[in-house]
Design a protein around this nucleic acid. Sequence first.
DNA 1: TCTGGGGTCCTAGGACCC
DNA 2: TCTGGGGTCCTAGGACCC
Length: 422
Amino acid sequence: MIVALVDCNNFYVSCERVFQPKLWGKPVVVLSNNDGCVVARSPEVKALGVAMGVPFFKIAPLVRKHDIQVFSSNYALYGDLSNRVMTTLEQFSPEVEIYSIDEAFINLSNFAQMNLSEYATSIKETVRQWTGIPVSIGIGPSKVLAKVATEVAKKTKLGVYHLESAEQADEILSKMPVRDIWGIGSRLNKWLNTQGILTALQFKQANEGLIQKKMGVVGQRLLLELKGYSCLPIEVMPNPKQETCVSRSFAKPVTNLGELKEAITLYLSRAAEKIRNQKQRANILIVFIRSSIYSEQPVSRSLAITLPTASNYTPELLAHALGSLETIYLPNYQYKKAGVILSGLQPESIRQCNLFETERDLQSQENLIAVVDQINRKYGAETVTFGIVGKRQSWRMRAEKRSWRFTTKWDELPLAKAGYWN
DNA sequence: TCTGGGGTCCTAGGACCC
DNA sequence: TCTGGGGTCCTAGGACCC
């Protein structure tokens, strides 16, 4: 197996730069939803020592001092540019696995006779030319080693690295903290350190029984992958989702049941829309509300119910969701976040009818919801909403510094006028 | 004042079945 | 004296990822 990993360089920042070239060379950050944490940093910002995930308010002085350009997350833009990158990659191999919004694995096994570094370089240049997004590419005999190679690639000027031999791998792994291996998180890192395992190479050479006992088959696979045996296949067809979650933090704490109902109504509507797009129905509905984890009076309430029959029909799901909310709601607490999870998803093609419903009832439900989806697609999300959604929503998440949705909204297209581009 | 959102996989243990 | 064996399904919790 020969795997390449294509990783977009500080993707969200790069997306902002594509349509605002004046941002090149300047320090730029992109914030998480609700403008809470830093989730993407330009190299200039990394050089200032800003860590991934720090709360934005903690870097406010740095922002002023270095005139860091700040943006709220603009997922309409990032999602669209991601699609363009992935489509471009499909020119280069029939087997592309879209792993996340900014990463893809490519199977290059059939290209072994070529100079793969050169091939990767041409991939990189094409993506840059066609989409404006800079990428780094690592090549190795397994997904885990391709990840390692990508880390090396990011530090080279070329932005491409081919890990070809076990000696090369060991050389790199010996200088790599074990925490940086894909699949080793903070918990396992802590435990491994107590076992005297500090580097990736030490992990690779560790006692298999010990790793297996602690980490199960996940650990075994990881060891094999590091040794160059591919265990994790490239998955070209996305697996059907098993659950779908919509949740948001509030801009300010909410205590009132009415406002929570509004929020749950919007989240549930969005979640139902998502599973309809995936052509799925849900068997299980979970509703949760919770305070900030930093709160002095913490509260976390949730309820999972199994639906009488699988559904993706918003009004029906909504009735259950609001019922659950009333059950779990406790007055006088400061809720900071709420959400719904639709789980036990199954294909729409399987249908269990309710004893008292007729084919005609179901058909008219489907027609109604199809029209709602159409209107919201055409005129924008939440043009048509269900039930008790008001317009004055003081709890709505913040997105105060969002750039234009340059590629997906007619009235936000980039302007070709003097002064815009600089 | 202010700390994201959306997922996946694996395991262990209990309930229940024949 | 002596009380089986082999399963499935569900849930909760732990770990990870970007």
